[in-house]
Design a protein around this nucleic acid. Structure first.
Lengths: 129, 129
DNA sequence: ACCTAGCCTTCCACAAACAGGAAGGTTATG
DNA sequence: CATAACCTTCCTGTTTGTGGAAGGCTAGGT
């Protein structure tokens, strides 16, 4: 199976698949003409990565997850620890964004948004109390 | 005032201030020895940028905000539109992260996290239903 | 036989927003 | 006069890809 089909099946752009190969995340076989050739196994890995990335894991975390997946002697505690770590980061990010959201919506509410230059948003950014 | 003090007053690393100058966001005067020299006005701008960045505006948005701030003929509607735009992006990001969080915490909950290799997290990533 | 379309290849450049570090100049102080 | 604490410029690396150039392979149509 060539990269175009692998792309559709894995829901990853061909360019991204080549990139993942570049950084050693997934290998590929080659046809006689030099085209990349993917087995079902490799498509499976690509989908695994796609799913992991969609949950926000970094590429390096995906690398670790893949190696855990490939290791029959893994302990689920390791996987869980990785996931918990990631979850905490996500939750922290949400907190930060929520704080921004709250401040911003306050500011927006207080701004008339008309043709006049007077603007509480700019006043706030400028540090005027 | 030299960059060290400007850094403390603006709560921006000196390195970042130099970077902002590089990309034309804030200028600086120079002393005879070549050191950067900042006026109160310029510190004020740096703080404006710091505050804007802390609310998640991109550097380019900061550039626009600064130019609006400097323009006495601006209309507050323009500022407000920019802020609303940004707010929507933040809210969308929060939605995405919340979805990740929900999925992840479900998966974590379902995983024993012990010495055994059996792991629902990996199973999910692998696409097994 | 030739042309075109649609695949595929490699390689290079760019994105955002800085951080780290090298190599070296300046200034105040002990 | 040496040292510390500033400051300077310049180069590299980070993360995760995307866009494009230049060119090879293959099938189908005329």
């Amino acid at each position: 199976m060539k990269i175009g089909e692998a792309s559709e099946l894995s829901d990853l752009p061909a360019k991204t698949i080549r990139y993942y190969e570049d950084i050693g995340l997934v290998q590929s076989d080659r046809l006689d003409n030099g085209y990349r050739d993917y087995s079902k196994q490799q498509i499976h890995k690509l989908r695994f990565i796609q799913r992991s990335r969609s949950l926000g894991f970094t590429v390096e975390q995906c690398r670790t997850l893949l190696s855990l997946y490939d290791d029959p002697d893994r302990s689920s505690a390791d996987v869980r620890a990785l996931a918990e770590n990631h979850l905490e980061e996500i939750e922290q990010k949400i907190q930060e964004l929520a704080a921004m959201r709250d401040t911003l919506s306050q500011l927006i509410k207080s701004c008339q948004g008309d043709h006049r230059p007077d603007c509480p948003i700019l006043n706030d950014l400028a540090g005027s109390k």
